[in-house]
Design a protein around this nucleic acid. Structure first.
Length: 436
RNA sequence: GGCCCCGUCGUCUAGCGGUUAGGACUCUGGGUUUUCAUCCCAGCAAUCACCGGUUCGAAUCCGGUCGGGGUCACCA
C-alpha cells in the first residue's frame, strides 16, 4: 500500500485560526498514527491578501502547540516548492494542456474547466457516501487572468504532485469536493481519500468568524492558556477517547486516534471546559517551570526566585496564567487600611495580639508563625476565621488571598510588622490605651 | 432559493437492536479548610428534534417533517 501522506494548506493570513489548529491536529494525528507524512503547504495564491510575516506567525503557532510537520516551505522536502506562488508556470502549463485537450477553455483571459456533466460521488472516511448531482458542477475558473491558479486548481494539482493520500479537512469543503473530483479526473489522476470533519461553531452555532469570535491563536496564549490544555480541549471536540478519558497528551491522542471516532455534528467552541482543563494542567506544572512561564504574564518587575516561592501558593487558585498577577498584587503594593477595612469587632485586639507574638519570633519561618499565631488565638479566645481575616485584611487589604501565613513568610518579618503597625494606627483614636 | 451535511442533558460527549440512556464541564448542596481555591461526596439536568414505519423489542435501521449549518466567486 502506498504511503499515507496528508497535508494542511492554510493561507498566510497573519494569524493562526483555531479552526486551522483543529484541522492540523486531525491531520497530524492521522499521519503519525499511520506512520505517514504530514505536509505543510502555504496556500498563498491570493496576491491581494499578501501579509508580511504571516509565515512566521504560522510556524510559531504550530510549534507552540507541539505540532510538527515533515515537509513545508521552511523545511523543504522531496515535493517542493511548498508555496503555490512559486509554481505559477507549472499551473499555467497544466491549465493550457487542459485547453489543448479541450477539457478547458479561455474566457476573458482566464481559463475555465468545462463541466463534465455527470454526477460526482465519493466515500467520505468520516461521513460515508456523498453524491452531488451533475447540475452542481458547472464550468468554473481554474486560472485567473493574473496567471495565478484558483484555490481548487492549485490544491488539486499540488495534492497530485505531492502524492497526498488523504485529504482531511473541514466540512465547509464538502461542497467543493465535486469540483475537485472533476479536476482530478481531467488531470487523469486518482483522487485521494476524503474525510470531512465538523467545523467549530460559536455560541450561535455558526461557523467561527474572524470578526466576532476569538479565533486568533495568540489570544489564547496571551490569556494564559497552556498549549497542552488547548490541544487537549480541541481534541475533545468532535472526537472522543476510546476509553472515555478527558485529560490526555498530544502523544496519547496520536496513539488512540482514528477517523472512525470523529463525530459528524459541529461542536460549539465553548471555552468553559478549556478553563477547567487549563487549571488541571497548571496544577500539574512543576514550580520552576510555572515560575518561568508566569514571568511573561506579570507586568510588575519581579524575579524568578520570587515567583518560584509564590507559585505553590497560587497554583491551585488560578485557571489561567493571566490570573496570577491580581492574586500577587499585595506582595509589592502595601494596602491602604482604614477603620472600615476591618469587619470583626475584635480586629483591634487581633492585630495587637498578633504584633506581640510575631515580634517575639526569633527565626522567621512558617512553623514559628503557625505555632505562635495559633497560641495567640487559643489564649485570647479568638475565633480562628475572624482572626485570620483581620490579619489578611491588614496585610493585603483584600479578602481573597493565598494562605496568609505562607504569604507572611515570603513578605518577611519587617514588612509584616510594618503593615500590622500601620493597621493598628487606624484603631488608636477609637480605642485609646487604658490608663493605669 | 438550489445542492450538500448534521440533529443524545445548557456545553463537550459515550452509545453502534434489549442500558435505571453513562461520563466530563457548568450550576446547586454538603464535607475538609484561616479567605479563596484545590480535593472528596451528593444533586439538578437529555420524553435521545418530531411523526410515521421495520422489528417481539429502536437513541440505535428506513422514510418524511421540522430545525440548524455549509456552499453556490477570476477568496481560500
Amino acid at each position: 500500500m502506498a504511503k499515507i501522506r496528508v497535508r494542511i494548506a492554510p493561507s498566510p493570513t497573519g494569524y493562526v485560526h483555531v479552526g486551522n489548529v483543529y484541522g492540523a491536529l486531525f491531520n497530524y494525528a492521522f499521519a503519525r498514527k499511520n506512520d505517514g507524512d504530514f505536509v505543510l503547504r502555504l496556500d498563498d495564491t491570493d496576491q491581494k491578501r499578501h501579509i508580511e510575516g504571516a509565515e512566521e506567525v504560522l510556524y510559531a503557532g504550530l510549534e507552540w502547540l507541539g505540532i510538527e510537520w515533515d515537509e513545508g516551505p521552511d523545511k523543504g522536502g522531496p515535493f517542493g516548492p511548498y508555496k503555490p506562488s512559486e509554481k505559477k508556470e507549472k499551473y499555467n502549463k497544466i491549465a493550457k494542456d487542459l485547453v489543448v485537450k479541450d477539457l478547458a477553455y479561455v474566457e476573458d483571459g482566464a481559463i475555465k474547466l468545462k463541466s463534465p456533466g455527470k454526477d460526482f460521488s465519493w466515500n467520505d472516511a468520516i461521513r460515508g457516501d456523498i453524491t452531488f448531482p451533475a447540475s452542481e458542477v458547472k464550468d468554473f475558473v481554474i486560472l485567473k487572468s493574473d496567471g495565478f491558479p484558483v484555490y481548487h486548481f492549485n490544491s488539486v494539482v499540488d495534492d497530485i504532485e505531492m502524492q497526498i493520500s488523504h485529504v482531511i479537512r473541514g466540512e465547509e469543503h464538502i461542497s467543493n469536493t465535486p469540483r475537485q473530483l472533476a479536476l482530478f479526473e481531467a488531470l487523469g489522476a486518482a483522487p485521494p481519500m476524503f474525510a470531512h470533519f465538523p467545523t467549530l461553531r460559536n455560541a450561535d452555532h455558526k461557523k467561527l468568524s474572524k470578526r466576532r469570535d476569538p479565533v486568533d491563536l495568540r489570544l489564547y496564549r496571551e490569556a494564559g492558556y497552556l498549549p497542552e490544555a488547548l490541544v487537549n480541549f480541541l481534541c475533545l471536540l468532535g472526537w472522543s477517547h476510546p476509553e472515555g478519558k478527558e485529560v490526555f497528551s498530544l502523544d496519547e491522542f496520536v496513539e488512540k486516534f482514528s477517523l472512525e471516532r470523529v463525530r459528524k455534528a459541529g461542536p460549539v467552541f465553548d471555552t468553559k471546559k478549556l478553563d477547567w482543563l487549563n487549571g488541571v494542567y497548571i496544577r500539574q506544572l512543576d514550580n520552576n517551570k510555572m515560575a518561568k512561564l508566569l514571568n511573561s504574564y506579570i507586568a510588575q518587575e519581579t524575579t524568578i526566585e520570587f515567583l518560584e516561592s509564590v507559585v505553590p501558593l497560587i497554583k491551585e487558585r488560578i485557571n489561567k496564567l493571566s490570573e496570577a498577577e491580581s492574586l500577587l498584587t499585595f506582595f509589592w503594593t502595601r494596602p491602604v487600611t482604614e477603620r472600615g477595612t476591618f469587619e470583626s469587632e475584635s480586629a483591634g485586639n487581633h492585630i495587637a495580639e498578633a504584633l506581640i507574638v510575631l515580634r517575639r519570633i526569633p527565626e522567621w519561618n512558617l512553623d514559628e508563625v503557625n505555632t505562635s499565631l495559633s497560641k495567640a488565638i487559643k489564649e485570647n479566645g479568638f475565633k480562628t476565621g475572624d482572626f485570620y481575616m483581620t490579619l489578611r485584611l491588614a496585610i493585603s487589604g483584600v479578602k481573597i488571598t493565598p494562605p496568609i501565613n505562607e504569604s507572611m513568610i515570603i513578605l518577611g518579618k519587617d514588612e509584616v510588622l510594618f503593615r500590622l503597625e500601620e493597621a493598628q494606627k487606624t484603631f488608636v483614636d477609637i480605642e485609646p490605651p487604658e490608663i493605669g
